[in-house]
Simulated assay, not measured.
Amino acid sequence: MRDDVIDPSALERLLAAIGGDPEDLEELLGDFQHEGPRTLSQMQSAARAGDRDALRISAHSLKSNARDFGAVALATACEGTEHAAITDELEALRMRVHLIATELDRACGALAKLAQRDG
Rank of each mutant, 00 (worst) to 15 (best):
M1V: 11
R2P: 14
R2V: 10
D4E: 13
P8E: 02
A10S: 11
E12G: 04
A17F: 00
G19T: 01
G20H: 06
E23M: 12
L25W: 02
L28S: 09
L29S: 08
D31N: 07
H34D: 14
H34I: 10
H34N: 11
E35C: 05
S41A: 15
S41T: 09
S45N: 13
D51G: 03
D51E: 14
D51R: 09
D53N: 14
D53P: 10
R56H: 08
R56F: 01
A59D: 05
H60P: 05
S61M: 09
K63A: 02
K63E: 04
S64L: 02
R67T: 06
R67F: 00
D68S: 14
D68G: 09
G70Y: 00
A71V: 02
V72A: 14
A73E: 12
G80T: 10
G80Y: 05
E82F: 02
E82G: 04
A84I: 08
L90K: 10
A92M: 11
L93I: 07
H98F: 07
H98D: 15
I100S: 06
I100E: 03
A101W: 05
A101F: 01
E103G: 07
D105P: 00
D105Y: 06
R106L: 10
R117W: 06
R117K: 13
G119V: 02
G119I: 00
